[in-house]
Every structure is written in C-alpha cells, then in structure tokens.
C-alpha cells in the first residue's frame, strides 16, 4: 500500500539556522491490509515522514507510492485513497458533528442520500448517538476523537494515516479508541499506519517501525522485535549514572546504556541476570538506588535499538545519554 523509496528530506536553512536533514535515505514498504506503528524519539523525523506521506511536504529526494500512485506526481489520486487523522483536531469545533461530516463528505464528492448512508456507516461504531447536532467543542476529548476518525471513515479510505491520535486521552478512552480502530481496520480491510510513543499500543499490531535520526532502524513484527533481546534486561537506578556506568563497564565488562538517569544492561555478562544483579549489589550497594530484572518489552527493544544506532554513529561508544526526549539533554551530557 505504501512504498517509500530512498526518501530524503532536508529542511532548507534560514538565517542563523543551518539546513537540517530530517529524513535520510529511508526505504520502507507497508503491505496492504496491515497495521503498522511508526515510533521514534522526538526529532527522529517521523513527523516529517508523516507530512510527506499525507502530501503536505515534498521531499528533497526519493519516491513515495500510495496504492501504486506516485504521491509527488499524482497527489490527487493518492489523496483519494487516504484518510488522515492528525494529532491536532482537524474538525471545526464551531460546527456540529453532522455539519463537520457533511463538509468533509463534500470535499470527497459525497452528497445527498449517498452522504447520509455513508454517515450512518461511519458513525455506527461511535458513542455519538444523540450528540450529532451538538457542536464539537461541547464534546469530551474522547468523543471529539471519535468524530475525527468517523470523518475519515466517511470516505472509505484504503489507507488510514494517524499521527499520535491518542495524545491527550485518558487510558480508558485511549483503549476504546484503539479497539475501535482495530475492529474497523479488520472489517473494512484498511491499511493503517499510526505514529505513537506508547508501546503498549504497539504490542497488538502487525508491524512496528522504529526511526531515529531520520533513519529506519527496525521494521518488524512485535514478536520478532522482542526476540532481538534474548534474556533479561537489568535496569539500575542511581544518583550518579556516569560514574557508576564507567565502573560497571570497567570492572564487570558490561555493555551499559544510559537512558535518562537509569543505567540499562541489555546483555548481561555471563547471561545470568540474577547473578549479575547480586554482583552489582555486592560491589556497588551505596550507589544503587534501585535495581530491576525484567523480561524485555517493546519499549526495551526501542531503547536498545535507538541507543545502539546512536552508538554506531559515534564510533562504537556505547555510553549513550538519551531518553526518547530532548536533544538538548543529549548535548548537555555530551559536553
């Protein structure tokens, strides 16, 4: 459904601001009918990729095919296949639910009886019964998100692109939204590509793609990704991460990743996590605030993969101060 070939996007430089590479030679193929989650730290280029995919930006180089249509040469044909749910609401909150849907339908050439039939279809799964003539700004966050998704379903998209659609929702609403999305995807045979930071959302999907620094680091099933980390992960909480990391590396020969203020050992020397834990406690008890042994989750794989990529970029140094957060923090600790 989506084929991205050698895509590169460079933001042009402005005054006092050098040009910046956001996506670098990225190749990715999303098969028909799959549910893919695209993840990556802030600034990894996934928002840029998303803008390109929905046709709002033209990349510096490369090609994007949506259902076989070249997004750059024939945007209208590609756009007709797509529904896009943005992170920020794209409905007019001054208008009612019905008015929003009918305007959106009109943009895709739907009117009259056809529009009404599609509207019933697109709203069938929602909890918006009885609220259809209410203005969108009177709806709760969860319901407003439902309007957003219903609006996109109106046009029966073959491909649904969602940009962090559950941002700002409470856990129950988030779960409800994702369940509905999963059901609708299977029922309608849609291909779904969704960006997300939340790894619990990724456990049930078909594929997870991980991006960092504009590159695709991994693209695989959640099972296969989890299998990349064999054995347990040890996470150490400490007040002096840098000092302790150096000692662990030197004394125990452990591969240590710094993630925020935590130290992570993804591959335990000797393979026995419990023995390693005991050793750390025996030798460094005063410096350790907490220590955990756990089975790797997708989030652990994500941290591992992004950290390793960063290490490779720095010539093999594996002490990587990074969280999936700010670039500032990285520069600070690098200095």
């Amino acid at each position: 459904m989506i084929r991205i070939e050698a895509l590169t996007h460079v933001y042009p430089g402005r005054r006092r601001q050098p040009s910046r590479v956001a996506v670098s030679d990225l190749t990715l193929s999303v098969p028909d009918g799959t549910f893919t989650i695209l993840s990556g730290p802030n600034g990894s280029g996934k928002s840029t990729l998303f803008r390109i995919l929905c046709g709002l930006s033209v990349p510096s180089r490369g090609r994007v095919l949506i259902g076989g249509h070249d997004l750059l040469r024939d945007p209208a044909a590609a756009r007709a296949l797509m529904g896009v749910v943005f992170q920020n609401p794209a409905v007019d909150k001054h208008l009612s639910v019905t008015e929003n849907l009918s305007i959106h339908g009109a943009l895709y050439g739907l009117s009259g009886a056809a529009l009404r039939a599609r509207m019933d279809e697109a709203l069938a799964w929602t909890d918006l019964d009885g609220r259809l003539s209410d203005r969108v700004d009177t709806l709760s966050g969860g319901l407003a998100r439902q309007v957003e998704l219903a609006k996109c379903l109106l046009t029966r998209p073959r491909l649904l692109l969602l940009d962090e659609p559950t941002t700002g929702l409470d856990p129950a609403s988030r779960r409800a939204f994702l369940d509905a999305l999963g059901r609708l995807r299977r029922a309608l045979g849609m291909t779904v590509l969704m960006t997300s930071h939340i790894f619990s959302e990724a456990e049930t999907v078909d594929r997870v793609a991980i991006m960092a620094d504009g590159q695709l680091l991994a693209h695989d099933t959640p099972q296969a990704l989890r299998a990349r980390l064999t054995g347990d992960v040890v996470v150490i909480e400490t007040d002096r991460p840098d000092a302790l990391a150096a000692r662990l590396r030197g004394d125990l020969g452990a591969g240590v990743i710094r993630h925020g203020d935590d130290l992570r050992v993804d591959e335990v020397p000797g393979g026995d996590a419990v023995a390693f834990l005991e050793r750390v406690l025996a030798d460094y008890r005063p410096e350790v605030r907490g220590i955990t042994v756990k089975q790797p989750t997708l989030e652990d794989v994500f941290i591992h993969v992004t950290a390793e990529a960063r290490a490779a970029g720095r010539g093999g140094v594996s002490e990587i101060p990074r969280g999936p957060t700010s670039a500032e923090e990285q520069q600070e600790s690098a200095a």
Binding site: M1, R3, S29, V30, P31, D32, G33, T34, G67, G68, H69, A76, A77, R79, A80, L81, A106, L107, Y108, G109, L110, T155, R156, R158, D206, R207, H219, D220, T221, Q223, A224
Partner: peptide, 27 residues
C-alpha cells in the same frame, strides 16, 4: 521484511498493483 510479516496474517504488497481511487474528489 515481507517474509517475517506472515505470522501476523499480513498480505505482502504486490509490487506493481495500482489501486484505482474510488472517486477522484469533488468538483
């Protein structure tokens, strides 16, 4: 990766399949 996707029931993408847009948008 199309090889690893089968476990989840995904259908590999046909390389040249082109999907005709249902409607090419409004007038």
């Amino acid at each position: 990766l199309t090889d690893t996707a089968r476990s989840s029931g995904a259908v590999p993408d046909g390389p040249t399949e082109t999907i005709a847009p249902g409607r090419a948008g409004a007038s």
